[in-house]
Design a protein around this nucleic acid. Sequence first.
DNA 1: TGGTATTAGTTGAAAATGTAACTATCAACG
DNA 2: CGTTGATAGTTACATTTTCAACTAATACCA
Lengths: 151, 151
Amino acid sequence: MRAPPPEDDDAHFDLKDFLPYLLNIAGEVTSSGFQSSYKNQYGMTRTEWRVLFHLGRYGDMTARDICARARTHKTKVSRAVSALEKTRFLKRHKDLEDRRFETLCLTPEGYKAYKALCDKARQFDRALSAQFTAEENAILRRCLRQLADLP
Amino acid sequence: MRAPPPEDDDAHFDLKDFLPYLLNIAGEVTSSGFQSSYKNQYGMTRTEWRVLFHLGRYGDMTARDICARARTHKTKVSRAVSALEKTRFLKRHKDLEDRRFETLCLTPEGYKAYKALCDKARQFDRALSAQFTAEENAILRRCLRQLADLP
DNA sequence: TGGTATTAGTTGAAAATGTAACTATCAACG
DNA sequence: CGTTGATAGTTACATTTTCAACTAATACCA
């Protein structure tokens, strides 16, 4: 017994055209490619390096800021911050005006790790971009930023 | 004490230009948006949905085929297949020529679920695409397919 | 033959993630 | 004040994913 065979009419639409699917696969393929390119030198998860990157690139901020900028859930960020604190890549500073907040600051070691990863990332991104024209790259990134709904 | 402030020179590069990052965020945002439109209905995970879709769209195939086509790890597929079997959306048929393989076939109920999801997906994708021009959509999808390294 | 290497798929344990409830702090308003 | 409601962040628990072994079947090759 077989399932009904695929029809070629309009009732189907190709999975390879479905944006959420394409985005997930492309994200998975490129991320794991990048991860192996630096051989997970620092033993960080992707969420941890996302936090590290935000602090390194955009300066000290609170967990809440990172959630908003990276569109990442607060529990994920909370755990990443704990992990980075344990490896001494960042310190917390309670805001004395409003003690619900804590400003997150990279330590010198954290900053060094960020710089190293930053180099790898730039290199990796350049290699990815090389397969497209300048116009394609511009359009691709613009569409992605819009889909990601980044601030 | 503060971490070194962000510099604006070439030593940094913007996270919002980093493809793996953008792809992951965009994938997460769009997928969770889509998931809310079907999750409650069938209680499927994304991997299960992926398997269902492959069988519905491209016809019966083995788990190995799905792994290759969707660039998904075999343990993920294996567990998704078990789950779909338990909900009676698919059946396995041992290949008698080479008994390592089993061909996966949607049941009529599985096929019905696929068709329903297919409609939702097409609808959702149309809404996403509507924010871009035809040219942008073409370029976006072409780049994504290439990055995803799809067969 | 028979021994070794591959391949399809499964499983168990550890890690990561998602969800919801929780603490602690502050703001608004009577 | 004091109560209510919002916000920042954590934690507990369930689900999912990952990684490394594992079984079973086949291929290769001396």
